[in-house]
Design a protein around this nucleic acid. Structure first.
Lengths: 251, 251
DNA sequence: CGTTTGCTTGACAGCATTCAACGTTGGTGG
DNA sequence: CCACCAACGTTGAATGCTGTCAAGCAAACG
């Protein structure tokens, strides 16, 4: 029940000035994004498919519920949240996405997006036109396999969140959330014990099914217990084992 | 935020005696399961792909977390639940599946299933070997499209459940659950206002992130309010508008 | 017909929410 | 450069919803 990375496309190893076009073949996120070994010509096909980077400023949306679906997006830099909204206005953050992760799968089913994707900091994404991705994946089996795996992991990830929302108490939810974040950051070369949150307490709360005050209290509690050191959005994990103990010896 | 039907394969229009092999081309669930218009030869290919029915008795599992993944399954008759388990033993029902719906997508990502699928009543399923489904979908674009749509809808459905678990109160959750069930039953030709639950209060509770006593109380409350008539697992919806009002004018 | 399993209801406890006040941070403009 | 403002975060007190524990009842099964 621990969410996975959901990768596919592209960010340049050493970006040439003003390079609007980005080559997957030369992308330092390749391992995360689309971990498939490709022959050279196949990789070129993939490159030609992916459109150049697109910039989204902090607070702006990459897409919104109701927008017609055209493309999957790969995060190159920055940080996103996705959220769904009920007719009465209440909404739920359904995920946080960092470099190398993909978003937009929600739109395939109905040809319209069903959630909003909001940048939590200035961000760049690669645009992958879905029709072309489908075309290429028909010709190229490993790409097809990988694509299916990524969607499946998204489903598994969501099941993990459902478990969290359905059966954990506030502190346990926060522990699971932090462990998930640090694991993903660590696999990107960042510290496994120190992190800077890119989202507010309210957004964390929405994701975890808690009110912002409860999130704040849970942070304070874990700090008092010597498990974390928290200074606003700066978090240091002092006792990872204690975090783990919280979630898998729950009740 | 209302879950959708997730269809693909097969059940016979008029089952010939002892027919182990089932033809999708002659299946009365075709509309639900794999709503794709196919040429005759293409349909034959699909038929040859789907293995005959498999019987699962009430309480038995179709697959379990950890089992190696081979196939997607289409429910022909009966009723399933899927559930994920945390290392400490607590588990969460992640879905209820009825005739015409598909299960097993969780296994694609890691080549192992990540949840259990349990029959809540004697059931029959069609087995669709995944490797062959991938092969056929490479050749046959509409099948590919449909398959992707189905997985996407599964993701969207899960987002709806996350919204429910994250922001609704007990009665609202139950209302959303009942509306979802009646809609799916209605699209199968059953009454939209009368239903027989195939799961226990505890299973409903697990799905909705509530204890069984809370589920029971919510049923009683809705009955007292004249919205439902409840006799154990027999439920009649007296005021569907009231149910809807509960969920989309929540707080 | 008895036993088991599932459902209902009550009383009480506990955890998260609500409401409110205060503190902190970062950005903006005087 | 500093003051101010707005957004964000922390903390306390009280309320309330859901969970827990327990008892009794109904239905299903052998």
């Amino acid at each position: 029940m621990e969410p996975q990375i959901t990768p596919i496309a592209c960010a340049p190893g050493a970006p040439t000035a003003q390079a609007l076009k980005v080559a997957c073949s030369n992308c330092n996120l390749r391992e995360l994004c689309l971990p498939v070994t490709l022959a050279e010509d196949e990789m070129q096909r993939l490159d030609s498919l992916v459109e150049g980077r697109k910039v989204i400023r902090r607070g702006e949306t990459l897409f919104r519920a109701g927008d017609t679906f055209h493309s999957i997006y790969a995060v190159r830099t920055g940080f996103f949240k996705t959220r769904v909204s009920a007719p009465d206005g209440r909404d739920q953050v359904t995920g946080f996405l960092m470099a190398g992760e993909l978003l937009g799968f929600d739109g395939i089913g109905t040809d319209r997006h069903t959630c909003d994707a909001v940048a939590l900091e200035d961000a760049q994404v690669c645009t992958i036109p879905f029709a072309q991705l489908e075309n290429l994946s028909r010709e190229f089996t490993p790409l097809q396999r990988q694509f299916h795996k990524i969607m499946s992991r998204e489903i598994v990830r969501d099941h993990g969140v459902m478990l969290l929302l359905g059966s954990m108490r506030a502190e346990e939810r926060l522990a699971a959330f932090l462990l998930n974040l640090t694991r993903r950051l660590h696999s990107r070369g960042f510290s496994a014990s120190e992190l800077v949150l890119r989202m507010t307490r309210e957004e964390i709360g929405s994701y975890l099914g808690l009110k912002l005050e409860t999130v704040s209290r849970a942070f304070s509690k874990l700090q008092d217990d010597g498990v974390l050191e928290v200074k606003q959005r700066q978090v240091r994990v002092l006792d990872e084992a204690a975090l783990r103990a919280l979630i898998d010896s729950g009740r």
